[in-house]
């Protein structure tokens, strides 16, 4: 392919991304050094937004919680997603129904799904799952005000919402694995486990890496689900980084745009660190191809 053709083909898309993603991003970086509200020209305040964010214990808690959520949810999704995909792959006539009903969780708009999810645990709205768990364990859980039960609920919701995507992806990956390998691995027992662990999973490294990547990205920006699921997120240490930004820069007419932007920049750095292994792999791959 000639350089000119390449430029013409990729140009429009690049233009849109530069115009609508890079320019706003530049504005965010600008704002992060300013004291500013919407529609106004800000005043330069140096690094004070950054120092304010970094010394705010609330921000520290938000980072901790977001990382915790990311690690737990990603591990659960990879393990359960793989198991379900293997199971679904072995199904016959049932398959479309199982897959179709799982996709419902994925297509519900995030915040709407979170509200529905919260109703299952909120006794003011019937709380049918809360009731079932209370009957089974004989214990009462404060799903919305106790840190750990609330975390469990948020984790359950995030897994619920993101699992279908990874099942779909892993299932697609499984179909790319040669048939003999797959059939061999459907037999129960130790040999099957070994088969999955040493043969099938390694051949699917690419897709599993991708699922991992997308899940990490999506969990790191958890935000709208917390509005119904954790009404006092900050007070119990279950606030995510994006929720912190929302609270400072938009909600209830709050206009600390400078602080919000500084946190945005910090979280971009954090995301890049989390994604570093993937970026390195991609570059390595490009080098070998070049």
């Amino acid at each position: 392919m000639r350089r000119r053709e390449f430029a013409v083909l990729i140009g429009p898309s690049l233009l849109v991304m530069v115009g609508l993603l890079v320019l706003p991003l530049v504005r965010t970086i600008q704002w992060s050094f300013q004291e500013v509200t919407y529609g106004q020209v800000g005043t330069f305040v140096g690094l004070s937004n950054y120092s304010q964010a970094l010394t705010d214990p609330r921000f520290g808690r938000a980072v901790f919680f977001t990382l915790l959520l990311t690690i737990v949810v990603t591990s659960i999704i990879l393990v359960i997603g793989y198991l379900i995909a293997v199971g679904v792959n072995g199904l016959g006539a049932l398959r479309p129904y199982i897959l179709g009903s799982m996709l419902v969780a994925y297509v519900l708009p995030g915040v709407v799904g979170a509200v529905s999810f919260s109703w299952l645990f909120d006794s003011n709205f019937g709380g049918v799952l809360n009731l079932a768990i209370e009957r089974l364990t004989g214990r009462e859980f404060l799903w919305f005000t106790d840190t750990w039960p609330n975390r469990a609920m948020i984790i359950a919701h995030t897994v619920w919402h993101l699992l279908p995507f990874s099942v779909l992806m892993i299932l697609a990956g499984l179909q790319g694995v040669p048939k003999e390998l797959r059939e061999a691995a459907t037999i129960d027992g130790a040999s099957a486990w070994k088969m999955h662990l040493y043969v099938i999973i390694p051949t699917m490294r690419g897709i599993i890496g991708f699922v991992c990547l997308i899940t990490i990205m999506d969990v790191l920006r958890t935000f709208d689900s917390l509005i119904p699921l954790s009404p006092q997120a900050d007070a119990i240490g279950n606030e995510s980084i994006m929720y912190y930004v929302f609270d400072n820069a938009f909600r209830d007419g709050s206009q600390q745009l400078g602080l919000g932007s500084a946190v945005n920049v910090l979280s971009i750095l954090l995301i890049l660190i989390c994604l570093f292994p993937f970026i390195r792999d991609l570059l390595k791959e490009a080098k070998t191809k070049a």
Partner: peptide, 15 residues
């Protein structure tokens, strides 16, 4: 209500 508070600030800022 909380949406009204947010929107009030937004609509009143700017020309």
């Amino acid at each position: 209500f909380s949406g009204q508070v947010t929107k009030t600030t937004a609509t009143l800022s700017g020309d």
